Simulated assay, not measured.
Amino acid sequence: MRTELIQEARRQAEICNACRYCEGYCSVFPSLHAERAFSDGDITQLANLCHNCRGCYYACQYTAPHEFDLNLPKALAEVRRDSWESFAWPQPLARCFHSHGGAIALALVVGFALIFWAIRAIGSTGGEGFYSVLSHNAMVLIFAPAFLLPLFSIGISLRRYWHAVGGQPIQLGDLKAALSRTAKMQDLAAGHGEGCNFEDEDRFSQARRHVHHAIMYGFLLCFASTSVATIMHYGFDLHAPYGFWSLPKLFGVTGGVLLTAGCYMMVRLKQKSDRNLGDVSAWGGEIGFILLLGFVALSGLVLYAFGSSAVMPALLAVHLGSVLALFLLTPYTKMAHGFYRVAALVRDAQRKRDVSVVR
């Protein structure tokens, strides 16, 4: 990890630790104030615990033009992104994406769409609906490795992170506490539940929390759609295409709408926000990832709407190409931040448990 980023975040954390004005603002400050000195692992943990709500910045009396020049959201955002790049496997891919994320995402979508178009030109072994273009076995052969290999990569990254932050053996209570906070997006409501200051300076808003809910649950519904369809195919010998009132379609359409709307609103919030309170160098990569995720959802909805038309093969090629690009890029984009965030919350639950035992 880059030493200068860690050192700057440590300098600011030490000043915040002496001031303690923001102790009740969010989950970062109780964890920060529990320490007297900060190792590199401590700073990495604080950075991944931070949700960039920015409330501390607007409440701080030591921001520029004060000589302390505090901007803790920016300092932690830079450490956070650097930690993802440092722990990623293979590492060079992560640094490349965050520098040129939009261009890479676009190139992959176009490239994979062309690949699928070529496969379609070769032909299919037969089948109904989408399988008349690309057989079920061919889809499994392509997408199973594209799904499992990124999970393997993320597993290596999280193992490196867990070692760096001094993680302990995980207990069920730690995991339940972390998942509960994640499901509620509790930390995006900040310390007093009023919301965060992400998009409109010192005005509190729940917009970012609601948008994250739409994206997270939209994605989970889409994943549930694919999972249920897989169980129906292999477990009950019920093959696609499925009707609208089937679980795969209900989950998929609902998830697609939530995901599309959530990504659109997230881009709008980011455009309204102050880039200087985040990691400026990663802004393009973040926008590229959000657009890719939204495009996957939107192209899926369009494919469903025109699935019986003459343009279906072209729409299928574009959609499958974008899905494959999303899968393969997952360990190197902000998609990975969900895994790191849960890991940071689990580690924070362990810290709280240790404190309660001492008391």
Rank of each mutant, 00 (worst) to 15 (best):
H98I: 07
H98D: 15
H98K: 04
S99Q: 12
H100W: 09
H100I: 15
H100K: 03
G101H: 00
G102R: 04
G102D: 03
G102H: 00
G102L: 03
G102A: 00
A103W: 12
A103N: 08
A103Q: 09
A103F: 15
I104N: 03
A105H: 08
A105V: 01
A107Y: 10
A107M: 13
A107R: 08
V109T: 14
V109L: 12
V109D: 04
V110C: 10
V110S: 12
V110P: 05
G111W: 09
G111A: 10
A113Y: 02
L114G: 11
L114P: 00
L114W: 10
I115K: 00
I115P: 03
F116H: 15
F116L: 13
W117R: 12
W117V: 10
W117A: 06
W117P: 14
W117Y: 13
I119W: 08
A121H: 15
A121D: 10
I122N: 10
I122Q: 09
I122D: 10
S124C: 06
S124F: 02
T125Q: 14
G126A: 00
G126M: 07
G126Q: 08
G127K: 09
G127T: 01
E128P: 15
G129I: 09
G129S: 12
F130L: 09
Y131H: 15
Y131W: 13
S132L: 11
V133P: 04
L134P: 05
L134W: 10
L134D: 07
S135Q: 11
H136K: 07
N137V: 10
A138K: 14
A138F: 11
L141N: 14
L141S: 09
I142Y: 00
F143P: 04
F143H: 09
A144Q: 10
A144K: 10
A144G: 01
P145T: 02
A146S: 06
F147D: 13
L148T: 00
L148K: 08
L148P: 07
L149A: 12
L149N: 03
L149C: 04
L151N: 08
L151I: 06
F152C: 15
S153N: 08
S153V: 03
S153F: 09
S153Q: 05
S153R: 04
S153G: 09
G155D: 11
G155I: 02
G155V: 01
S157I: 12
S157A: 15
L158D: 05
L158E: 00
L158T: 00
R159F: 02
R159D: 07
R160W: 07
R160P: 01
R160F: 01
Y161V: 01
W162L: 10
W162N: 04
H163T: 09
H163L: 09
H163R: 12
A164W: 03
A164D: 05
V165T: 08
V165C: 05
V165M: 09
G166W: 07
G166I: 08
G167F: 02
G167Y: 05
Q168V: 00
Q168S: 13
